[in-house]
Design a protein around this nucleic acid. Structure first.
Lengths: 190, 190
DNA sequence: GGATGTGAAGTCGTTCACAGCT
DNA sequence: AGCTGTGAACGACTTCACATCC
């Protein structure tokens, strides 16, 4: 909307766009502050700023990808990250020589693949705050332990395995096969 | 548990494993039937069978991947699908010649990449029930329209864009940047 | 007039607590 | 005795409906 030059937006418009109830939009936004003007709506620019601030997207998040297989190298090449203030600043694998060819061929080697033993050192050096785990499921907990040891408090896990971490650390899972299972369930019961 | 030779399992064990409440496990399972035995627990083999049946995972789901970029070719190479009765039987792109090299190099060409114009014909031929969309966001709705036209009722969308489909069709999104945003939010507010 | 902010009502899923089987 | 199945209490989010303010 900002790009399209819209100045103000109502909760009804936002609700329509997101396919939710207008009251939900107002309550959710209001939870974080009074961003709107009665009788007017929400100023697009202001609202965008506030949402980014609330979500913590007004600063750069520095990311490491661990496990440079098919998925890992896809993520390294994923340009849309930059739009959202995410920056992949390191890549790790248990066997860097094996994967370097595949990765550099795609990217012209903007991020060197390092051996996982160097995680702790590099996390400190490059101020990494989030780790994306794209290893096989069997290695996930071990990698998570390395990240915890290096004080990386946020983990995004793509492998189909549960992770446990100490308090103060956060794990979010991207289990697309679970979503696919959900889809299969819905299709079975139409 | 089945692989480990466990014969019975209690709701408490399952709850512990999944980090949820035991009553939730019982209520959820009971919603679909009385699978347990009072005083005993759930028979592992039976429960597994029932869960698969309920979720529609007792039959093979035939999948097409549309958009063979980095992510698309990763999915083509994703072996774990087979464990869960999913089978990728077709791959489409707007420019097959461009991507064939990259894909076959990884896979030895088990699934030929076809031009998207052939979706309707191939869906019928290969009895495809689910489409995985991994194109750029700008193309998502157009691809969804093609799938709807071909009567593919289930869509798993990996691109960051909303899709609308007619009633009777199901779309599930895998927006990993949304999950990453959620992670950033949680890290901002510890 | 018109859209936000917000108590109150409504809805849905979760958790408790125990009756009912084995 | 032990664990499921389940009514009842609880809690959290959603939606309604309107007072409030521009």
């Amino acid at each position: 909307m900002e790009e399209e030059g819209e100045k103000v937006v109502s909760s009804a418009q936002l609700a329509n766009e997101c396919i939710v109830n207008a009251a939900t939009v107002r309550k959710d936004l209001n939870y974080f502050g009074e961003f709107g003007t009665r009788g007017e709506g929400y100023d697009v620019k202001d609202l965008l700023y506030e949402i980014k601030r609330v979500l913590g997207l007004n600063k750069e998040w520095r990311i490491a990808v661990i496990g440079i297989g098919n998925l890992g190298s896809s993520l390294l090449a994923y340009k849309d990250f930059l739009k959202q203030n995410y920056r992949i600043v390191a890549a790790f694998d248990i066997d860097p020589p094996k994967v370097i060819g595949r990765v550099s061929e795609k990217l012209g080697k903007p991020v060197e693949v390092l051996h996982i033993s160097r995680i702790k050192e590099v996390v400190k050096e490059r101020k990494i705050q989030i780790g994306l785990i794209t290893t096989p499921a069997s290695e996930v907990q071990a990698v998570a332990n390395l990240l915890v040891e290096a004080k990386v408090r946020g983990i995004l896990n793509f492998a189909p395995a549960q992770i446990t971490v100490p308090k103060g650390y956060v794990v979010k899972d991207v289990f697309f096969t679970t979503i696919l299972d959900n889809l299969a369930y819905l299709l079975s019961n139409i």
